[in-house]
Design a binder for these strands. Sequence first.
DNA 1: AGGTAGTGTGGGAGCGCTCCCATCAGTGAT
DNA 2: ATCACTGATGGGAGCGCTCCCACACTACCT
Lengths: 351, 351
Amino acid sequence: MASQGARGRSGGRPTLEEVAARAGVGRGTVSRVINGSPRVSDATRAAVEAAVAELGYVPNTAARALAANRTDAIALVVPEPETRFFAEPYFSDMLKGVGAEISDTEMQLLLIFAGSDRERQRLAQYLAAHRVDGVLLVSVHADDPLPDLLAQLEIPAVISGPRSSAETLPSVDSDNYGGARQAVEHLLSRGRRRIAHITGRLDVYGAQRRVDGYRDALSDAGHGVDEALIEEGDFTEEGGHRAMRALLERHPGLDAVFAGSDVTAAGARQALREAGRRIPDDVALVGYDDSAIARHLDPPLTSVRQPIEEMGRRMIDLLLTEVADRRPSASRGLDRRQVVLTTELVARSSS
Amino acid sequence: MASQGARGRSGGRPTLEEVAARAGVGRGTVSRVINGSPRVSDATRAAVEAAVAELGYVPNTAARALAANRTDAIALVVPEPETRFFAEPYFSDMLKGVGAEISDTEMQLLLIFAGSDRERQRLAQYLAAHRVDGVLLVSVHADDPLPDLLAQLEIPAVISGPRSSAETLPSVDSDNYGGARQAVEHLLSRGRRRIAHITGRLDVYGAQRRVDGYRDALSDAGHGVDEALIEEGDFTEEGGHRAMRALLERHPGLDAVFAGSDVTAAGARQALREAGRRIPDDVALVGYDDSAIARHLDPPLTSVRQPIEEMGRRMIDLLLTEVADRRPSASRGLDRRQVVLTTELVARSSS
DNA sequence: AGGTAGTGTGGGAGCGCTCCCATCAGTGAT
DNA sequence: ATCACTGATGGGAGCGCTCCCACACTACCT
């Protein structure tokens, strides 16, 4: 007996070895039970489970991570400042879906902000250390180097909203093009003709697609597209406010606004108020996301609902599949890895 | 040579051993350099650092955690549903302070919600596995079993807001009693005499202290305390709305309200509006926290500012000290472990 | 010269798991 | 009875670190 066995140090947490001794089996068998391997007889399994319960055994994560070369953790990376994260319901809704789906698993979810250069530096270090098995990337801009870094480190990743039509990473998105069409067609059906659009950040592919939808809906209905009615926003409230003022100045006669997000719409509403325009009498307003603020705005905001929580859930599904596929030389890239969910227009009194 | 050395597997991340070989030193020396030990000669240190850079070495966290029995991670535990977390600026401000302070260290911050029973179950498991070196507990209710669990597991913890005057855990709080006095004295100085108070959740000690401050400010000014002017809230907007309606019904002549939080004040404002009361003409309103919504409310809300970010920073400081003290048999509990920060009244047009 | 402290440094012995190979008993086929 | 499998099991060999003891060496005292 080698002087001091693992047993000696009283008070410490029980180890696999101790559980094995208690159950009268070998280490390997306990490991099999803990990990749910089918190749264990029922009797043995029961004995081990009893020993685990008696000893209050909890596996040591660090030891497992070291031996198995996995962490059982994934990160939700938000390439925005924390402020944005809290200000925009999009993120919290996404987090809700992700959290709900992951809580059925043994995986741990980490929330990482990478808004500043310093934070990105830390994140790179973090990823290089392979401290997570996979990454969820939300709201990625076209020129973001993060996806490439991930690919280089061979870390599975899923993004919400492809960077372009040629996205190679698995992604989950809603039908931005169709959603925008719904919004515009709704406004047209309400008799509006001078419909403006405050876009999202145009380096986000989804925002571009919404512009496409806006344009096509107008064209297909036989109306021309007046470029002066399109103003770039950035998904924020301030951006919406600023864009709305620019539009009003340039085009005082507009009678409807399709905003790139509900938050943007809130900013636009403020600007409309300040300009003495009534909603919806003078100007109809439609938002995007159908987040909580749409319901709470005064007047309640018509909005294009995208199933953000559902998107979060699907992202986890995709990522977990991706992570699992890293073990066997399984089929890769054959299944549908680009998910697109449909949107729905929720009409309220702002239009 | 034992068939396949650690060296063999190409493509894998470099290990300590490989860095040592490259630098022409022993494993121990590299470890010392990595961990900033002073007992390394400058020349050796430089050689090791060069090897680290050349190889792009990043320490394996799991191996370190296993060998050193620490995780270099701490958790911010929010014993509330996620919804509350996002709805109340208190939490996000706290997170901002915590995040800022911890980003100077090597520690990783984990955000854990423990609102539902299920989540609490998971948390207990998580803590039992000792996956964090320490815990930050915010918004703890009087009967919460979490602090005891932490103590039993011998996990260092710091709470924001003691559970009672006899709190044993290190804590960081603002001067709730004093803050409430400031609010009431302000209203008295504005000539208000029928001052109501919508409390926070009374199972939160800080909320009780605010009631004490409210009472004493009134008494000390020679005014009686009318119990009918005190209504229990719960820090939420709905709670504030409901409480305000109850107060108006019971005491239509009130001329001022001191709300337990800004969010509560927002709910109260809504109820006041619905009752046709003008702010501040008919009823003056004062909130607590001085969060972003205080500035954005219509009219802008007078509020008692508590330095929440600062509180977050101080909590990290305390916790890190606590964690560090676990190694040597250092002095324990002698230093000031109960921090109380002062509040400040920010007067705006609601009073 | 012989001690007596330091400094740097190398490397053995684990930390508590997972992986995988060897082993063993049982089962049906030959 | 022998053989070939198969399912269940034990335990050796790591995973990549940290800790700590041992071993130079180099001053600096007696």
